[in-house]
Design a protein around this nucleic acid. Sequence first.
RNA 1: GUGUCCGUAGCUCAGCUGGAUAGAGCGUGGGUCUCCGGAACCCAAGGUCGGGGGUUCAAGUCCCCCCGGACACGCCA
Length: 551
Amino acid sequence: MKAKVKKTLEETVKKLYSLELENFTLEPPKEEEYGDYATNIAFILAKNLKRNPKEIAQEIANDLNKDWLSAEAVNGFVNIRLGKEFLQEEFVKLLEERDAYFFYSVENPPYIQLEFVSANPTGPLHVGHGRGAVVGDVISRVLKRFGYKLVREYYINDAGNQVNMLGLSVFYRYCQLFGKEDPKLKETFEEEGYKGSYIIKLAKDLKAFYGEKLLHLQASEAIDIAKEYAHKRLLEDIKETLDHLGVEFDVWFSERSLYDSGLLEEVINLLKERELIYEEDGALWFKSSLFGDDKDRVLRKSDGSYTYFASDIAYHYHKFKRGFEKVINLWGADHHGYEKRLIGALRALGIPSDWLEIRFVQMVRLISGGQEVRMSKRTGEFITLNDLIEEVGRDAVRFVFLTRSSDTPLDFDIDLVKKNTAENPVFYVQYAHARIRGVFREVKERYGIDADREDLLPYVQELNSREDLRIIKRCLYLRDIYESLLNTFSPHLITYALIDLAKDFHYYYNHHRVMVEDKNTMLSRLALLKGVEITLKTAFEILGIKAPERM
RNA sequence: GUGUCCGUAGCUCAGCUGGAUAGAGCGUGGGUCUCCGGAACCCAAGGUCGGGGGUUCAAGUCCCCCCGGACACGCCA
């Protein structure tokens, strides 16, 4: 809708002034009396033409008036109001096309990879990972509806020091179960090991599986076995949690495969050929300071092992080779210092810096009883994502994660989300859907009219009142929102638009009864509600939450 | 110390490439159904947009300085 208005506006400007502008705004104004869209285009033109913006606005408004929209110049702004018939026509389309109304096929969409979560398989997912998971999932659902070819990918850090430490930790706990303690192991464990209780649980399982067999092996061999076992189990856990959350991936990419395929060596050789690598203190360094980083970074440590940085470069080089035209990474906010060096390294390999877009997802704090909660009562650990899903349910978790722009920290109030009142935005919005379904059930019962089958299209023209049209606009507006996501990747806009829609619907519901004497009025209101239902349901599918029949 | 992000109503936050009288929700106070679901709706109070300077016809938004907060700064990942 916005796109159509914008195009018309551009044509007008071109006709009147032979100019092509891009940097003007076109947005819904704060005040309803200023129309459906307002533009500052006259101010921008005023600069170019060196004329009074008020006159320009007037000229544009005069030319802009069409049958489907009206324009008015006020104080240099051009306020645009969509015509009633136009809104009704669009609403008819919505009723006909249903969820397909909100999307269209983008021409030649880029082949995109979206990498998100990618938590190390060294422990359970925590709530911060969940936020990234949901944000990434919703972005990918939207892109897919616009016809994008998209790969959702999870990068598994199954090589390097972290997983070794995992193996060591589990083996250490395993030995403890037999009352044995190797002082050397203990020292490493105390310093760098994973202390969570899930490690002890894994050790017990390991014991159940292997008995005391591992005690008789070389420590390094036993640690390897423990490592394989633990990381496999933890990865299964992670997959299960993501499944509970309703988040799917197309590719699970193993870091280790970069080692096995020799790609890591290959990339280092490439950098070597470009003389961007040097050796110092027995380590291999990449001259990242030449690419905007504040210092050079180590690729291979003096003990011969590679850093994560090295495999990350290889991984992203590999992504490039796989033919992705655009790669989006959702990273936890604690990784932001890492961005420069990675993009720098890719530039060194000849990959343009806008090929990779890194979006950061800020921290989540759990609040209960007005206090920040860190520990789970049950396990004594940090509350895991799984705990949270069990506690408040999938829909609430997903929705709340989407109620904030992902670049601001989020407070997740557990008590609030468990309340079934308007304080809880999830219920507020889902309730609107359940209410509509309730009305439909009642109408069928009393009048034998099935809103799901009845041809309601002819009655849309009866929807004339300001309040009818406001709801129609709210529904149509979701189309603009989805479209804007293609550029902003900000799924929280959806939840905001839904809350607005639900609010207007609840108001409407309280002021206008559907089941009234006049049958035309009844059918037209059914049409309105049907449109709201479709809009809500479509959005719920995108958000990955249920559209309840009753609550 | 350096870098990134942030500071908007009592609380939690929107405010999209600068635009009109800064918006929601919760909380607080008062109200609304003879009737489709009151898990709802309406009204009201509540703001020097952290402070100061600058650019601009126009600044919550851009620039500079200061104050306060989060996170990151390793041959960790």
